[in-house]
């Protein structure tokens, strides 16, 4: 009986948590944006969230592209199909690895930082203080961070894919000797703009929504102690990574299964 009670309790508190998260997001987004005051805040957050993640995204992209080329080459060369290295790398990046790996890295780099920052603002009563100054912290603190994450991640995913393809070219063409012409031309004949690039971007926007939302909610809802913040930060990375992988399966099933 205790077990059932605990299970029910846990389920109900999950629902309550989802409800609070939705209310937070709606509270932050459902309002007339004030461009004069909002734009500087957004730019600052784009810097913190987007620009600060550039380095890790580009370096990871380069290495993942290089590894893909190396692994793909060793398999393809067995069938004498090493010319298909281009589409292999490009398709796996644009459809899957670009959006997914970017989202995972973003959760670790920017998501955890967002959670910690907002958690700390809560613990040091800065959020309460804003509220007592008659300024809605949802609009002032949460909204610009959300938009920054939502805009940054698809851009980061595009940069990731582009850099990774360059990395694959570096290894495949310059090192392993795949013909540069066939690398690009077969890639172009196989990759379609709508099917691959646009679908990849749609994925990326969905992941951006998920990761930023989870990160902001975990920070906003954390127990305002140092212990609570560190727990919330861990939860952000774990929950958003799992959510990204889960939604990736769903989206892939919808987009590419027919």
């Amino acid at each position: 009986m205790d077990f059932l009670q605990a299970l029910g309790h846990k389920t109900l508190s999950r629902f309550a948590s989802l409800g609070r998260a939705t209310r937070m997001l709606l509270g932050a987004l459902l309002s007339m944006p004030n461009f004069k005051k909002g734009t500087p805040l957004l730019i600052k957050q784009l810097y913190m969230v987007g620009h600060q993640s550039l380095l890790i995204i580009m370096v990871s992209g380069l290495f993942i592209g290089m590894v893909l080329a190396l692994q793909g080459y060793t398999v393809l060369v067995g069938y004498g199909a090493e010319d298909s290295l281009g589409p292999l790398v490009a398709l796996s990046l644009l459809r899957e690895l670009g959006p997914v790996v970017t989202a995972l890295l973003f959760a670790g780099r920017a998501g955890s930082a967002l959670t910690a920052e907002i958690g700390l603002m809560k613990a040091t009563e800065q959020l309460s203080s804003l509220e007592m100054m008659a300024i809605d912290p949802l609009k002032r603190v949460v909204a610009p961070r959300f938009w920054a994450g939502f805009i940054s991640m698809p851009l980061l995913a595009l940069i990731f894919s582009a850099v990774a393809i360059i990395g694959a070219h570096l290894v495949g063409v310059d090192w392993l000797g795949v013909d540069s012409g066939s690398f690009w031309s077969i890639m172009q004949s196989q990759v379609s703009f709508q099917q691959d690039i646009l679908n990849g971007m749609i994925k990326s926007f969905v992941f951006a929504l998920i990761v930023t939302w989870i990160a902001l909610y975990k920070g906003y809802d954390c127990v305002p102690t140092s212990e609570g913040i560190s727990k919330a930060t861990t939860e952000t990375v774990v929950h958003s990574s799992l959510a990204v992988l889960g939604f990736d399966f769903l989206l892939t099933a919808v987009m590419f299964s027919s």
Binding site: I159, A162, I165, S192
Partner: peptide, 16 residues
């Protein structure tokens, strides 16, 4: 940089 990456992918990688 993001827009440039998009352009590269759209023009160089895909058969748009």
């Amino acid at each position: 940089l993001g827009v440039a990456a998009f352009a590269v992918l759209a023009l160089k990688v895909a058969n748009s």
